[in-house]
Simulated assay, not measured.
Amino acid sequence: MGKLSFLIGVGAGYVLGARAGKQRYEQIKTQANKVWENPSVQNKVGDVTDQVKSKAPAARSAAESAATKAATKVGLKDSSSDTGASDAPTAATDLSGRSRP
């Protein structure tokens, strides 16, 4: 996967940065489409898509847990009550807690 990412990056960099003209751009675009439509590339894309879909719920849960933990740590959420209230600044105050004019 590392080599593929590198090649994609090189190709994108060349296309975006080159001054080779429209004809060369079209050649690169055609080659990129051939690679993308290659059955082995599409099989890998399918494999990666399936892995992402199967791991997405666990990743979401981990992210939510980490966000809650971080918010509690910095005092944005009172962990002793589950009222949904927050000590986060309101629209009438800035981050220091002072009222805005």
Results as ranks from 00 to 15, higher is better:
residue 23 Q to I: 10
residue 67 A to C: 09
residue 99 S to T: 08
residue 70 A to Y: 03
residue 51 Q to R: 14
residue 86 S to N: 04
residue 45 V to I: 15
residue 26 E to G: 02
residue 53 K to L: 09
residue 59 A to R: 15
residue 53 K to Q: 07
residue 16 L to R: 10
residue 54 S to Y: 02
residue 6 F to P: 00
residue 87 D to M: 10
residue 89 P to A: 14
residue 37 E to W: 04
residue 37 E to D: 14
residue 56 A to I: 08
residue 28 I to L: 02
residue 29 K to N: 09
residue 51 Q to H: 07
residue 12 A to D: 08
residue 92 A to N: 13
residue 100 R to Q: 12
residue 56 A to Y: 08
residue 3 K to M: 05
residue 90 T to F: 10
residue 24 R to K: 13
residue 93 T to C: 02
residue 91 A to K: 12
residue 27 Q to H: 02
residue 95 L to R: 06
residue 12 A to N: 11
residue 37 E to T: 14
residue 14 Y to M: 07
residue 19 R to M: 05
residue 22 K to T: 06
residue 77 K to P: 00
residue 47 D to V: 09
residue 52 V to L: 15
residue 83 T to C: 04
residue 58 A to K: 03
residue 100 R to N: 14
residue 28 I to P: 00
residue 77 K to D: 01
residue 96 S to C: 04
residue 26 E to H: 01
residue 79 S to W: 04
residue 68 T to G: 07
residue 15 V to F: 02
residue 35 V to D: 00
residue 24 R to G: 06
residue 9 G to Q: 04
residue 48 V to R: 03
residue 38 N to T: 09
residue 95 L to V: 12
residue 73 K to L: 07
residue 81 S to V: 15
residue 67 A to I: 03
residue 76 L to R: 00
residue 9 G to W: 04
residue 64 E to L: 12
residue 61 S to P: 01
residue 26 E to L: 13
residue 11 G to F: 00
residue 80 S to R: 13
residue 55 K to C: 06
residue 48 V to A: 10
residue 78 D to A: 06
residue 49 T to E: 10
residue 55 K to D: 08
residue 2 G to R: 13
residue 18 A to M: 03
residue 85 A to L: 14
residue 17 G to L: 02
residue 28 I to F: 00
residue 46 G to Y: 01
residue 40 S to R: 13
residue 17 G to W: 00
residue 71 A to R: 01
residue 84 G to S: 05
residue 87 D to L: 13
residue 84 G to P: 00
residue 69 K to F: 15
residue 23 Q to V: 13
residue 32 A to S: 11
residue 94 D to C: 09
residue 80 S to G: 11
residue 69 K to M: 14
residue 20 A to F: 05
residue 60 R to E: 15
residue 100 R to V: 15
residue 90 T to L: 14
residue 53 K to I: 05
residue 21 G to V: 07
residue 40 S to Y: 08
residue 97 G to P: 00
residue 88 A to K: 11
residue 20 A to R: 03
residue 97 G to Y: 02
residue 99 S to M: 11
residue 32 A to R: 00
residue 69 K to E: 15
residue 87 D to T: 15
residue 33 N to F: 02
residue 23 Q to G: 06
residue 24 R to C: 12
residue 36 W to T: 04
residue 24 R to F: 06
residue 78 D to S: 07
residue 33 N to V: 07
residue 98 R to Q: 14
residue 49 T to P: 02
residue 6 F to Y: 08
residue 11 G to D: 02
residue 61 S to K: 14
residue 29 K to Q: 09
residue 44 K to W: 08
residue 26 E to Y: 02
residue 65 S to F: 03
residue 82 D to M: 04
residue 82 D to L: 06
residue 95 L to E: 05
residue 74 V to T: 07
residue 49 T to V: 11
residue 90 T to E: 06
residue 27 Q to I: 00
residue 63 A to W: 08
residue 100 R to M: 13
residue 65 S to I: 09
residue 52 V to A: 11
residue 89 P to M: 09
residue 87 D to S: 15
residue 53 K to W: 01
residue 83 T to D: 09
residue 45 V to K: 02
residue 28 I to V: 15
residue 87 D to P: 10
residue 51 Q to D: 08
residue 77 K to E: 02
residue 96 S to W: 06
residue 90 T to S: 12
residue 66 A to D: 11
residue 45 V to G: 02
residue 54 S to C: 03
residue 28 I to T: 01
residue 1 M to Y: 11
residue 43 N to I: 11
residue 52 V to H: 03
residue 2 G to L: 09
residue 71 A to D: 03
residue 45 V to C: 04
residue 27 Q to P: 00
residue 66 A to H: 11
residue 4 L to K: 03
residue 55 K to A: 10
residue 32 A to H: 00
residue 25 Y to R: 04
residue 16 L to Q: 12
